[in-house]
Amino acid sequence: MSILAQADINVLETACSPLNVLTELTCAQWQWLRSPETGLIMVRGRAGGTGVQFNLGEVPVTRCALRLQRDSHLSANGGAVGSTIGVAYVQGRNVRHAELAARLDALLQEPASCERIHTHVIEPLAAAQAARRDAAARKAAATKVEFYTLAREAQTPGNTGEEP
């Protein structure tokens, strides 16, 4: 869920474009349990980083939930139809992002589609996220100060070596 939530929406769309994932996404029967809704989450911090909690400010978040219904589900666990629920909470106001994330969340819980979604969507997204973070961290690392101590001039006659 974290990978899906933090993905760039364009990258996410691209990751979903391989035919077998698209088919999965569009052919299954979906029922909204909670249609996409944008609201706010209050972000909290702690005084001194570790102390009392306080309210820092809000971030917009879009959430939705839907139920996956399909015939194959019946045979998969012999249980009731429609027990797989996909949920998404995604930072920002992008309804499409939340919808895709919720659908993928449901498909990831299904043995029939789990592996395919992992290979085609989750792994590439995780790799892209890691690469993005790595690039930023390496640029920051290049600005790390390397201290060196100035070596005193070699002792010469007349230089007592006393601190000024």
Partner: peptide, 17 residues
């Protein structure tokens, strides 16, 4: 999310707002 409950969850309002 583990949602194998006895009764399936009912959707809420159709048009929330």
């Amino acid at each position: 999310m583990d949602t194998a409950t006895a009764t399936p969850l009912a959707p809420g309002f159709e048009q929330r707002v």
